[in-house]
Design a binder for these strands. Sequence first.
DNA 1: TTGAAAGCGGTACCAG
DNA 2: CTGGTACCGCTTTCAA
Lengths: 337, 337
Amino acid sequence: MANITEVAEAAGVSISTVSYALSGKRPVAPDTRRRIEAAVRDLGYSPNAGARMLAGRRTQIFALTEPLRADSHAPTHMSFVLATTVAARRHDYDILLLTDEQASAGMSRVASSGLVDAILVLDVGPDDERVPLARSIDTPTIFIGVPDDRAGLVCVDLDFEAAAVLAVDRLVDAGHRSVGLIGQPDVAYEKSNFPPRLRRAFEARAAERGARAVARTSGDRSTSAAATRRAVAEMLDDGVTALAVHAADDVHQVVFAELAERGLSVPDDVSVISVAASFDTAALPVEVDVIPLIPEASCDLAVELALQSLTDEPPEATLHLIPPTLIVRGSIAPPRR
Amino acid sequence: MANITEVAEAAGVSISTVSYALSGKRPVAPDTRRRIEAAVRDLGYSPNAGARMLAGRRTQIFALTEPLRADSHAPTHMSFVLATTVAARRHDYDILLLTDEQASAGMSRVASSGLVDAILVLDVGPDDERVPLARSIDTPTIFIGVPDDRAGLVCVDLDFEAAAVLAVDRLVDAGHRSVGLIGQPDVAYEKSNFPPRLRRAFEARAAERGARAVARTSGDRSTSAAATRRAVAEMLDDGVTALAVHAADDVHQVVFAELAERGLSVPDDVSVISVAASFDTAALPVEVDVIPLIPEASCDLAVELALQSLTDEPPEATLHLIPPTLIVRGSIAPPRR
DNA sequence: TTGAAAGCGGTACCAG
DNA sequence: CTGGTACCGCTTTCAA
């Protein structure tokens, strides 16, 4: 824990020169710089965080609020937390994790103490308590996800509507006239905003294209396997020839298991497309076309926006949509009959 | 973002009085205190974090290093992260999350910049790179989990050996002479330290008690269902009459599914005990005796130790074991024949 | 019971 | 290209 004075002495320069050599905000003679760098290395110096926060204008810390509710899907949430952390580190930022049930308390605390430069909000609910709070504090706040009322907020998200449209179009273009959507667990349609957004767009696009759409959730967490099997079975009996799956890893597994048990192969008997999956679909037992939800994409953008909001040209307070992409792996074919 | 000077002016006192009124480190006259508190409220004041870190001796931040590897079991890790955060908040501490692949870099950075008061280490591997680093920095470090070489380290963990002994004793006391252990996924036996510890103790205790022990892993992550079914089947065919399960939620589900398919009921045909489960076993389809691994217990203790290491009586650099507890739900009975 | 003032360790302005 | 120094906002002696 050496300090800047010791570095300056060791290098035989003033502390301001050390500061400038490190920040690069002023030119420093090459060999002066070398001496300083050597001293820094020898002493294992890194600038005191508190002093920096106080004197400079930046804390180099972002808060990340993520309720981590028990009913949330852990792997998905972890990917987002991880992606955010990695993105932040790339810009020399650390992540302070706020998980308090009363997320608002944490947010106001870090905001009013100036502990963080910006706040990133994960797991955004339709009627999120963090929304009004974000409007009341002066620490820039970026939402990764979209609340119902997003007026005045900076939000980032995959364009779920466009993803649904893309999925429907792929299936209808291949000739399917009756398409099914295996959705998220029931609870997700209340606690989150994107599942209904995707489902609505799915149904609307199907209607536009003159196809029939059947949507089912994947039940509740503990009985999702059974509910999913039933949904798949009923859809197939109902004449559905193509499935879009908007769900976690395990639900995909169950869908394929059910198809296999019925002796149906993909894509010859049934077409399948995975929509907004945030896990690694390449590890599934069947090669499946996918419109992925890439946590890195959302989180990278969110971090960029957070950084930008610290400049004199803050980002527009609007929804920043990430266009969906399609990875083709051959799970879509024309319907059998 | 008012500062202490504004509060002092508003209350008509000096800044030192404000400071003392807030910290309580010096008696303040009742009505002086009231005026200060009013000013604090009116101005929405909370002390600047950077200034506090610089002037005081505490940052009120703990770092939490958690690799968040892709092959790690997300729900389990999330419980630990959450439990740590909650425990820390109870003592007015925030958590800075370090997930870098090169976990060491993050640790040295926060240590040498004085960003955090202590470091909490999660997901500890047998030969963890954070072990030598912890020895080289002067920021107190607490391991939640145990590396192979723990000399000089403060570690916290469930007493897995005692848990195994307790499980074996329960089963043997009930009359079982041949007991099986359905273990963690293969990878856990390389990447972690506790699965082999538990297994060794299980086998050793069985031998001591004159019982036969059969241990199997739950295969690799993607094929764990099949591997688990096979393990259960083979054990039963092999004369095992009681199963100890040391694995995640899904593996438990598979075990019960396999037993049900064979028409075996718990505990009449087979006894089962869950060992070191960190999820909610009450939600399982069968009421099962459990020796739980309680993340809150480990994390609370770790936070206590972290706090204590900031005092002049730091905790002993040793393994702080948490004694196992048994919850009886009626899944153990004497063997059938 | 209260106040004045010396740091804590940087940043960045003002000089040279 | 480099040095001196006034802050940043708080904690904590030292005095009164």
